[in-house]
Amino acid sequence: MLAGVSRRTLIKAAGAGAALAAAGTLPTRLFAQEKLKVAAIYTVPFEQQWVSRIHQAALKAQERGDIEYTATENVSNTDYERVMREYAEAGNQLIVGEVFGVEDAAREVAADYPDTAFLMGSSFKPDDAHPNFAVFDNYIQDASYLTGIIAGAMSTSKNFGMVGGFPIPEVNRLMHAFMAGVKETAPDAKFQVAFIGSWFDPPKAKETAFAQVEGGADVLYAERFGVSDAAKEKGVLAIGNVIDTQSDYPETVVASALWHFEPTLDKAIAEVKAGTFTAADYGVYSFMKEGGCSIAPLGTFEGKVPAEAMALVAEKEAAIKDGSFTVEINDDEPKSS
């Protein structure tokens, strides 16, 4: 993810053409018997939540023997296009990354390398002009909603602090889902919503969370690193996002919404190997029914969450998976209330 600059303000509307089926596909030469050469480009460190899940999925595919994997972290937006071209020139058949701040430039690179498949995190949809450029996003609203049910049941003050990076779709939809879940068990809930203007600034996130605790919050939604540290120091609870940090904060993190990038990446690998990779929207593979997200084990909080809340979580999870219940996807900026 882009560090230090709001992605939405940098994305050009020209990339917004929505088309799930592309005009063509990559050349039909099959790679089924080969290890696919895959490269990834990240604008933040490997350990950052969002990127860590992509990196982990790629490492697993490499361990299985499906791919040869190389990656570069901390690539600036101004250098992103150069690194993309270098990886394409090096013969990588699939290039993965997140182009929220360099949307137009990334699509131009894809146009220059039509035989290379690009799978990129993006707020926009694929388009006919770039048949080898597919997009993905972390649509883990299902798991976020379920953690909200738990949070609502664990709060005494019914006041919830929420610290995000930027108010862009990838963050907004998860916050809204969490808030909707909270209201299932705490209908009179109040929310303090803040954005720190960075994807990786734990000290700033921590200070923001401190202020929310001072404002009465006894459960914090930790969309960013640093929030759980604040919760631990202040003796309140936290809900994790994207990764499982329960073992790091055993008395603080009650539950976490996990993102599993494996379904997304494995689908792309299979399509490239089959010669059928197209400009598609891979966002659906983050949905719970596709195995793209889940709730982390409660760890030390097992048995401490009210039974009624856990029964509701089980009921809603089953309904999400069988399609009888759909968590709303709301990309609008959430507000304090």
Score class of each variant (00 low, 15 high):
M1E: 06
M1C: 14
V5M: 07
I11D: 10
L20K: 06
L20W: 11
A21Q: 11
T28N: 09
R29Y: 04
F31Y: 14
K35W: 01
L36V: 08
V38I: 12
V38T: 11
A39V: 05
I41F: 06
Y42M: 15
P45T: 07
H55L: 07
A57Q: 08
A57D: 07
Q62P: 09
Q62V: 02
G65K: 02
D66M: 08
I67Y: 11
E68N: 10
T70K: 06
A71L: 05
A71V: 09
T72Q: 13
E73C: 04
E73P: 13
N74S: 09
S76T: 15
E81S: 15
E81Y: 02
M84W: 05
N92S: 08
G97S: 10
V102K: 03
V102I: 10
V102A: 09
E103D: 15
E103V: 09
D104P: 00
A106K: 03
D112I: 00
A117R: 01
M120W: 08
G121E: 07
S122K: 05
S123Q: 14
P126V: 07
P126C: 08
A129G: 09
F136K: 01
I140R: 11
I140T: 14
Q141E: 13
T147F: 01
I149D: 12
G152H: 06
A153G: 12
M154Y: 05
T156Q: 14
T156V: 09
N159P: 00
F160T: 07
F160N: 02
F166N: 02
I168C: 01
P169T: 12
E170S: 14
R173L: 14
R173Q: 15
H176Y: 09
H176V: 05
A177F: 01
G181F: 00
V182R: 03
V182E: 06
D188W: 02
A194G: 03
I196M: 10
I196E: 04
W199I: 03
W199D: 14
D201W: 01
P202G: 03
A205E: 04
A209E: 03
F210S: 06
A211Q: 12
E214V: 02
V219M: 05
A222D: 03
E223G: 10
R224K: 11
V236Y: 04
V236C: 05
I243S: 11
Q246M: 08
D248H: 10
D248A: 14
Y249V: 12
P250E: 12
T252P: 12
V253F: 00
S256G: 10
S256H: 02
H260I: 13
H260F: 12
F261G: 05
T264G: 02
V272E: 01
V272D: 01
A274S: 14
F277W: 08
S286H: 04
M288A: 15
K289M: 01
E290R: 12
L298H: 02
G303H: 07
G303R: 08
K304R: 14
A309P: 11
L312T: 13
V313T: 08
F325H: 12
E328M: 11
I329F: 06
N330I: 13
N330T: 06
E333K: 15
S336L: 09
S336Q: 10
S337I: 10
